[in-house]
Nucleic acid binder design. Structure first.
Lengths: 148, 148
DNA sequence: TATAATTAAGTTGTGTACAATTTAATTCTA
DNA sequence: TAGAATTAAATTGTACACAACTTAATTATA
C-alpha cells in the first residue's frame, strides 16, 4: 500500500465527488438563475429570513471575501436586499424580496431532481448522510443549531 | 422533514468537508510550495511519470482550463517540465524534473500528518474510503486503472 | 486526397474560495 | 472616558473551476 498513491487518498474522493455534485446542481439551478453558493444562501434565508451576513457565513463556513460578492449577485438578481442593523451599523442584515420568497416555490422541485443525482437508495442516502454529518462534527463544521 | 433545509442536504456536507480538508492540506503543503491541485498532479506523476496533460486531466477530473495554469505553476516552481509528443504534436507530455523527484521524499511525510486531519480510527477511515469509492463509481468518476 | 470531423491545449470570461489587509463601528479597559 | 482591542464588511491579490470558444494537429471519409 503506497500512501502517496492517488487511489489511497481519502481527500480525493471528497474533492472529486463534491465537484461532481456541484456540476450536476449547475444544470438544475440554471433555470432559477442561481449558482450553487447562491443557492446555499437562499436555503439559509428560506429557513430564517432577516439574518446577518456574518451568521450566514457561520452556517455555510464562508468568510466575507466569498460571501460579499455572492450576496451582491443575489441583490442584482433581485432575490434579496440588504440593510444595516440600526443597533449595530457594522452588521449587514440580509432579507428576502418578494421574488426571493416566490423562488422558494420553484426550488421545492430541486431536492426531488437532485435525488437522481446520486443514484442511491433511500437507505444508502441516509447512511451517507449520517456518516458525513458525523465527520462534519468531528471536523468542527457543525454549528449547534442543526437538525430539523 | 423539510427537503429545503440546509441540514437535510447531502450535497452540503460534501461541499463543506471537501473545503475543510483542502484548507487543512494548505498548511501541510505550504512548506513544499504546493497548492492542493498542484499536489494532486504531483501524486499522479509520482505514480507514473512522462504522461500527457490529457491523461492527468482524466485521472483528476480536471479540464484544460484548470490544468493548463496548474501545470504552468509547477513548471515555474521547477518540479516538472513539458515537451510535445513528436508522434502527435497536439499532446503535451509532462515529466518530473530532478527537483520534482526529490520532492517525493519530503511528501512521504504528508499522509502521516494528514491522518490527524480527520480524527478517524483506522477502521473508520477504511469505512469512509470504501463508501466514497463506491459513490465515485456510481457517479462515473472512477477510471479503470484504480486500486494499488 | 481534399475536406470534414475530431482531438488536445490554450484562451477568455465569470464566479467562487480564501488569506491578508483595510475601514468603520462598537466594546473593553486602564 | 479616551485610547486600545475587537468585530463585521469590504477590498485586494492569488489560485482554482469550468463553460464556451479558438487554434493547431491528426484522423476519418466522401
Amino acid at each position: 500500500m503506497n500512501p502517496l498513491h492517488l487511489s489511497n487518498q481519502l481527500c480525493f474522493p471528497f474533492y472529486s465527488i463534491s465537484k461532481e455534485i456541484i456540476k450536476r446542481y449547475r444544470h438544475i439551478l440554471k433555470p432559477l438563475n442561481l449558482t450553487y453558493p447562491q443557492y446555499l444562501v437562499m436555503l439559509v434565508l428560506w429557513e430564517e429570513d432577516h439574518v446577518t451576513l456574518k451568521s450566514i457565513g457561520e452556517r455555510l463556513q464562508l468568510d466575507s471575501g466569498t460571501l460579499t460578492p455572492v450576496a451582491n449577485k443575489l441583490i442584482e438578481a433581485g432575490y434579496v436586499k440588504k440593510t444595516r442593523n440600526p443597533e449595530d451599523e457594522r452588521q449587514l442584515v440580509i432579507q428576502l424580496t418578494e421574488r426571493g420568497h416566490a423562488l422558494q416555490k420553484e426550488a421545492e422541485q430541486i431536492p426531488v431532481k437532485v435525488h437522481d443525482i446520486y443514484g442511491l437508495s433511500e437507505e444508502e442516502y441516509v447512511r451517507y448522510k449520517t456518516m458525513l454529518d458525523d465527520l462534519s462534527m468531528k471536523l468542527g463544521l457543525t454549528s449547534n443549531k442543526e437538525k430539523c
